[in-house]
């Protein structure tokens, strides 16, 4: 995580054609960078309860909730195909897919309004409110 000064190019040309992805945010650090058979091992084991979703990962119980990306926003999955060789080199990040919802999982208890990610998603609404011009009437 260097604070490089070299520009980063975000290639969004394929935004419209980009496929939608299914996202799961796990409360675990998995030391793996690459594909995983989510559709074969994980998705089919998810149970939909009356209140929450449940599943297990490596024998740990997870409870989940589907979270919708705030209105007016879109979730992007980005990928850097080639790591730069030098610090100064311009970097290009490609759009891999987009998402409109994601499932947030917690260990043993369902995510609640106090969880960081759910709190974070309230920011766009707050940001809009504090940056909106104030009309005379409201003053």
């Amino acid at each position: 995580m260097s604070e490089s000064s070299s520009p980063i190019r975000l290639d969004l040309s394929s935004l419209r054609e980009a496929p939608q992805d299914v996202l799961h945010l796990l409360p675990c650090e998995v030391e793996h960078n690459g594909s995983a058979p989510v559709a074969r091992y994980f998705t089919p084991a998810i149970r939909q309860g009356s209140q929450e979703k449940s599943v297990s990962f490596r024998g740990r119980s997870l409870k989940g909730q589907e979270v919708i990306v705030p209105q007016g926003y879109v979730g992007l999955v980005l990928k850097e195909d080639q790591r730069p060789c030098t610090e100064e080199e311009e970097r290009t990040v490609r759009l891999k897919s987009t998402f409109g919802t994601l499932t947030v999982w917690n260990l043993e208890r369902a995510p609640s309004a106090d969880d960081g990610l759910l709190l974070a998603l309230s920011w766009p609404g707050i940001a809009e409110a504090i940056h909106a011009p104030v009309s005379r009437k409201e003053q």
Binding site: C28, E29, V30, E31, H32, P37, Y41, R58, G59
Partner: peptide
Amino acid sequence: DPVFGYPQFVRFSWSTAQTILESKAVPVRC
């Protein structure tokens, strides 16, 4: 499977399973 380990048919809490996971699967920290 290196990421998911085993299907839910396996008792992950058994040392037999844990030993294999530690040596053959990717490390996971919760």
